[in-house]
Write a protein that binds this DNA or RNA. Structure first.
Lengths: 146, 146
DNA sequence: GCTTGCCTTAGAGTCCACTCAAAGGCTTAT
DNA sequence: ATAAGCCTTTGAGTGGACTCTAAGGCAAGC
């Protein structure tokens, strides 16, 4: 069975050895030790860490992750709590995506507006505000003419 | 015409007066001054700040914002550069949304898996890995049977 | 006349998640 | 044999965007 020493593991998962020791200190990832106390990581650890990275990637904080890990260690009795926690994180992530999309929409309107100025397809002197209002009108119009 | 003193403006836009002075120091927002050097903000400032907050909300950094503002101050000759900058920010934001959605998908699969365990609709001892694999299979199956 | 709100500059503190350094020691690879 | 890689503990540094304090001083409202 394949095992990895910390340096190899770090390279494999794209983290530094520092970070791996830090995660271990925080209780997120507990590698095995060989006879000389050197850490080694297994494929199981790869899967678990990748899962952790997915959770982190949703915006889950270190502190939430630590809570999750502690609950997990207490066995099936804590599944409800884990579900609650994960639901909270998922809700947050959904909100974040919505916010991001909303902000991005404004940014892309601005890009279009600049592009229009460059292409001279919109009036030289139409303000961004006026442009946004015009878009709103057109949107309304589109919606009415479905 | 309505104007706001810093405290009122802060309340209106949901930032602190500290932050507004900080933004001013960084050149993002330059309010007017009255005879006693007290700042006052106009509706124009409201619009501009809200736009800035949208940009920030896409992940645009302070430093990018400062660049943008500087370009803007130099007039129409810098529109191409502004477009390039905003495109970069938009691309980043799109990537962020994709990453978030991807990570969230994994999290939601995990939630479903826990829920399945609680409902006893999945086997007591099916691992998350096995569950993900099974989902992949079913997805493939679904795609084939369109 | 007192409180509240604002002004200035300069600098310190906060939060989060790392990231690195120092120092001394052991093991593994070439 | 020597370098590279790992081990420990403790503590300091980093980056970004605020956030607040101190100290001293106007100015408007009740």
């Amino acid at each position: 069975m394949t095992t990895y020493r910390i340096g190899q593991f770090a390279a494999k998962v794209g983290l530094s050895a520092y970070t791996l020791r830090y995660y271990e200190q925080e209780g997120l990832l507990m590698p095995h030790r060989d006879a000389n106390d050197q850490r080694y990581y297994t494929e199981e650890d790869v899967k678990w860490l990748i899962f952790i990275l997915h959770l982190k990637g949703t915006g889950m904080t270190m502190s939430q992750l630590k809570t999750y890990v502690k609950l997990r260690a207490q066995g099936d009795a804590t599944i409800d709590q884990r579900l609650t926690l994960l639901h909270d994180v998922a809700d947050e992530a959904h909100a974040q995506i919505r916010a991001l999309q909303n902000n991005l929409a404004v940014l892309e309107h601005k890009i279009d507006w600049y592009q229009g100025k460059v292409d001279a397809t919109i009036a030289e002197d139409e303000s961004f505000e006026a442009y946004l209002n015009r878009l709103d009108q057109e949107e309304k119009h589109d919606r009415t003419n479905l």
